[in-house]
Nucleic acid binder design. Sequence first.
DNA 1: AAGAAGTCCTGGGCGC
DNA 2: TGCGCCCAGGACTTCT
Length: 275
Amino acid sequence: MPELPEVETMIRDLTPLVVGRTIEGVEAAFPGEVIWPSFDDFVTRVRGRTITSLSRRGKYAIFTLDSGDALIVHRGMTGSLLLRRAEQAMEPHVRMVFHLAGEDELRFKDPRKFGKAYVMQSNGAERPMPWHRMGPEPLNSSFSAGLLAEALKGRRALIKPLLLNQQVVAGLGNIYVDESLFRANIHPERRANTLTDDEMVRLHQAITEVLGEAVEGRGTTFQTYTDVNGRAGNFQRRLQVFGRNGQPCPRCGTPIIKTRVGGRGTYTCPTCQRP
DNA sequence: AAGAAGTCCTGGGCGC
DNA sequence: TGCGCCCAGGACTTCT
């Protein structure tokens, strides 16, 4: 599941490889992942353009083009962008291919078709950017416990679904929410408006630490995620609760349990995280 | 407005 | 052995 650290890793890997290069053509075995504009217009606006920079907002990868357009890719749950030589055998489930000048191509592999692609003016004049309602970037220095408290102020919903809501904080997904809540000793079914100031500080610190360490570790490979070269990340070795049901809590030894919170598989330590 | 539930999609795991 | 059911979840839509 590509979350903030996996997208950040991809951006860092791809930047030196594709900035300054021209996209000569686009092919789609499944054009349905292009959300805006029509697929034909998408191709017209991407073809012949040179990539001037790469950036990230939440889980969105942004390729800025020399036309002033932004090519925006969201990898959904199972999507990966792979940089391959054109002659290399095609992987299964490649939905879209961006042919670069030279013999390289960017392949958007996405088995479950949850990915999305857009081309729109970078300045937002054409239509609101996909992230226009998105919450603060948790790795920006401006993200503080106070800002987190502000985003959660007056909210009575369960803390876990709120943290998964990109309008509250950008970039968190199921893995890093569970890891952050464990690290902060907070039960995922606590109502957000019952968190104390101290818990808000711990949660803020846990989120920034977990995401920072995961970026450092080049992301988590769980089931399908790989980097642009098809290699696994490293952070799965450092997961403390996610995917570890039945295994001892690294803090107290109690077996980790798997439950359902807000319809999502959720891993907690029943001793360290009290309701 | 906010919260909760439903929806999309398909490979893989599991039960019979 | 092989078939078919069901699960996984990011973000959007629908409903209450």
